[in-house]
């Protein structure tokens, strides 16, 4: 038998859980736990000697609604685990043509092709990002935090990591790069869609550009300090408590 208090809390908890799932299903992770390991990187054209899982990378498509002439927020992820490409579109960040009711966002993996970057080597697939309202290309109008973010997963987490590059009429150009995960890199506030890739620079240049990483020593020291203090208080209290209880 379950007691009254337990029954009350079980009912309340199930109701809360149902409400949360109905009102706003959370994004990954489902609940908790450490991250799941990534699948091996999937190349359109794998480098010599690379052993992956033998599968081809996926193309990602997402339809973003347009309301009152402005696009809603939206994102697309490719189907790999973890996604090899993510694109986040902030609300009102696209130059939607009059009369459009939706924008189709698409990320297609391609093999690197000439012209290649003059410095460094493309280490990911090239992802061609397009946004179309019908057949009309949709430009990015939002800037900075109110714009469009692109995120690519690198084939590995080795540091110094790669940098974002974007293909323009003048060739590949380096873009803002932030490491946002173990092997995930983000370019915030991109100015245009098109071809994007991660490029590994020669070691010296890349090391200068690396955003760093590793252990946060200050936070670690503060955490250990509090842990020791809390431990001392706890041990003293528990000894007194058990001493009295005996």
């Amino acid at each position: 038998m379950v007691g009254v208090t337990a029954r009350r809390w079980l009912l309340a908890a199930v109701a809360a859980l149902a409400a949360v799932w109905v009102v706003g299903p959370a994004t990954a992770p489902i609940y908790d736990g450490i991250g799941s390991p990534d699948q091996p990187y999937r190349y359109v054209k794998a480098p010599p000697g690379y052993k992956g899982d033998g599968k081809k990378p996926t193309t990602a498509t997402q339809v973003i609604p347009v309301v009152n002439g402005k696009n809603r927020a939206g994102y697309l992820n490719s189907g790999e685990y973890g996604p090899q490409v993510d694109v986040y579109v902030q609300p009102g960040s696209l130059g939607v043509p009059p009369g459009a009711t939706s924008v189709t966002l698409k990320a297609t993996p391609l093999a690197p092709s000439a012209p290649l970057p003059k410095v460094g080597t493309i280490v990911s697939n090239v992802y061609r990002i397009t946004a179309l309202a019908g057949t009309t290309p949709v430009p990015i109008t939002g800037t900075g935090e109110r714009g469009v973010y692109i995120q690519l997963r690198a084939p590995d987490a080795r540091q110094p990591g790669p940098v974002f590059e974007h293909r323009t009429a003048a060739g590949w150009q380096r873009e803002k790069t932030a490491r946002s995960g173990n092997d995930i890199y983000q370019s915030p506030g991109i100015r245009e869609f098109g071809d994007w890739a991660l490029v590994k620079l020669p070691a010296a240049a890349s090391a200068k550009r690396s955003a760093g990483g590793g252990v946060n020593v200050g936070l670690l020291a503060a955490g250990i300090g509090v842990l020791v203090l809390a431990g001392v208080i706890l041990v003293i209290r528990l000894r007194r408590t058990r001493g009295v209880a005996l």
């Binding site: 992770p29 450490i34 991250g35 799941s36 987490a157 490491r179 946002s180 995960g181 173990n182 990483g213 590793g214 252990v215 946060n216 020593v217 200050g218 936070l219 670690l220 503060a222 955490g223 250990i224 300090g225 509090v226 842990l227 203090l229 809390a230 431990g231 208080i233 706890l234 209290r237």
Partner: peptide, 23 residues
């Protein structure tokens, strides 16, 4: 003390994980 220890343990986890985060 337990609440403070939990907060500190989370801080240590975040510090050790670095950019790896929950992964």
């Amino acid at each position: 003390a337990l609440g403070a220890a939990l907060a500190a343990a989370v801080a240590v986890r975040v510090a050790v994980a670095g950019p790896g985060g929950p992964s």
